[in-house]
Amino acid sequence: MKPEIRNDERQPALSTLDKAVLSRYQKNFPRTSRPFLTIANELGCSEQEVLNCFQRLKQEGVISRVGPVFNHKKAGASTLAAIAVPNEHLERTAALINGFQEVNHNYQREHELNLWFVVTASDQDHLTTVIGNIEAATEMKVWCFPMVRPYHIDLGFRPEFD
């Protein structure tokens, strides 16, 4: 099994509405009975246009979802983790790691520690168990770098559109 590769080079063209939605609604998504209508009124278009816009952005992968961003720390236990994998085992090991539903990010990076992933579990015991299971499955040491303190709160990202 090959690991899923998501480095799609294609970059979709964004409309004025797409850009407005991306700039203004990474936070403060309206909590009204018809939030897309609220957005439509704020942007001066129709509810259906806004719904279509979000659906298309999601389909094209410009956004991964519209919804709550949970604080891993308060909503469970998580850690950044890394493994130093010899190149010849990289694909197999990446696939093994990705097979864990508790792994929600996995990046290959240019370093001796070349696979970096985030493990999230409902509590600390479960997290420790999963790390152990990943070590057993990959037969490699997993380095854990749990967050001690954040210096930046992710409140969305301000893209500069060309």
Binding site: V21, L22, Y25, Q26, K27, N28, F29, R31, F54, L57, V62, I63, S64, R65, V66, G67, P68, V69, F70, N71, K74, A75, I153, D154, L155, G156, F157, P159
Partner: peptide
Amino acid sequence: CIRRIGAVP
């Protein structure tokens, strides 16, 4: 527990 609600780019 929730940081924000919105589009996740």
